[in-house]
Amino acid sequence: MIEFTIIAWVMSFLAIASALYAIKTKDLLSAAISMGIASLVVSIMFLLLQAPDVAITEASIGAGLTMAVFIYAIGKTERWEE
């Protein structure tokens, strides 16, 4: 049980940290990537909480496709926020 608690704490810390970094940074590309990291971490959390269905979806949509959409959009516009 103690391993679960440790992993859960580390994962929550990572998710919050990468979400905050995505808000703070001026570089939109790294913001998109850190959002992807946040979703990946959240999907691991889902797996730990015994929701594999949600975990698969979150991993492929949150970490894969959404990030791709963001990156394509950034490629069409500008990388740096003013």
């Binding site: 594999p52 269905d53 698969i56 979806t57 492929s60 894969g64 496709l65």
Partner: peptide, 25 residues
């Protein structure tokens, strides 16, 4: 596999479809 075996194993239409789409991505 994920969407065909949706009623037997974890997963289903949404996860399966998104995995396929990420393959094309």
């Amino acid at each position: 596999y994920i969407f065909i075996h949706g009623h037997l194993t974890p997963g289903g239409g949404f996860p399966g479809g998104s995995v396929i789409a990420s393959g094309f991505l």
